[in-house]
Amino acid sequence: MNPPTVTEAASGFVSIDEVAAVMERLSSADSARLAQLARLRCLGAVGLEWQDLLHEAFIRVLDGRRRWPRDVPFVAFIAQSMRSIASETRQADMVEFGALTEHEFGDDHGTVNVVARTDITPEREMAGRQMLIEIEALFAEDAIGLSVLEGLARGDSAGEVQAQLGLDPTTYASTLRRIRRRLTNYLLPTEA
């Protein structure tokens, strides 16, 4: 392994050789965590498989397109890279499927971008409704969790949800962790 160059060390970024060494020594727990995160990030991205997303994140850091800051843990850095790549993919999908269009709102309002799904089929709509029913059933015994989810679905901010439900920041954070765990177990059941 080559030592980091002066530029890499001074810039606060990990060298490509160091990245490769970290990837070779990645623990099975970290590998499993990254796989789970990749699966979650692929939701809603047409044709993007979790393995491809994870590999693309690795490739981008190894070829220098993404640089790993020394003060960021590797798993967190790769997770953020996957988030960015999946977001780029979804954005490209929206353009490809014609979901991003410009719409005129008259003289005083100017032009705005309107996001409209044009590829919704009756089957996809039924599947979406069924998923909502199943998610509501997941939280049937957790009124606070369901209320937080509903607030977030409306687009309310964290502060607005906390105020509406009378939650302090700690209880709100705990509720979000509980929601995340339940949804993760629902969407990505562990293999026996």
Rank of each mutant, 00 (worst) to 15 (best):
D108R: 10
D108M: 07
V114N: 08
G110F: 08
D108H: 09
G98I: 04
V114D: 08
L100M: 14
E102H: 11
T101C: 11
F105L: 14
F97R: 13
Q91C: 08
L100N: 05
N113D: 02
R90P: 00
Q91M: 13
D93G: 01
G110W: 07
V114A: 10
A86W: 03
E102D: 11
H109W: 12
D108I: 04
H109Q: 13
G106P: 02
D107C: 03
E88V: 01
A99R: 07
E96N: 10
E88L: 02
A92Q: 15
F105Q: 13
L100H: 03
E104I: 01
H103E: 15
V115A: 09
D108Q: 11
V115E: 09
E88M: 05
V112G: 05
R90G: 02
Q91R: 14
A99P: 01
A92R: 14
T89L: 00
E96Y: 06
V115Q: 07
R90Y: 04
N113G: 03
V115P: 01
F105Y: 15
F97Q: 12
F97K: 10
E104L: 11
D93W: 00
D108Y: 06
T101S: 15
A86M: 03
F97Y: 13
A99V: 00
T89E: 02
T89W: 03
E96L: 12
V95N: 01
V115G: 02
N113M: 08
T89Y: 00
G110T: 05
M94L: 11
E96S: 11
T111C: 03
M94E: 05
E104M: 08
A86R: 00
D93Y: 00
D107E: 15
G98Q: 05
F97H: 12
E102V: 09
V95S: 04
G98F: 04
H109K: 11
E102P: 01
E88D: 15
T89A: 05
E88Q: 10
E102C: 04
T111Y: 04
F97L: 13
Q91P: 01
Q91L: 14
A86S: 12
D108K: 09
E88H: 04
M94H: 07
V112D: 05
V114S: 07
D108P: 00
N113L: 11
V95A: 10
T89F: 00
V95W: 06
L100C: 07
G110Q: 09
D108S: 10
V112P: 01
M94Q: 10
E88R: 04
R90E: 04
D93N: 14
V115N: 02
V95G: 02
Q91E: 14
V115K: 04
D107W: 05
D107R: 11
E88A: 06
T111M: 10
E104A: 14
V112N: 05
G110C: 10
G106W: 05
A92V: 09
T101R: 15
F105W: 12
F105D: 14
E88T: 02
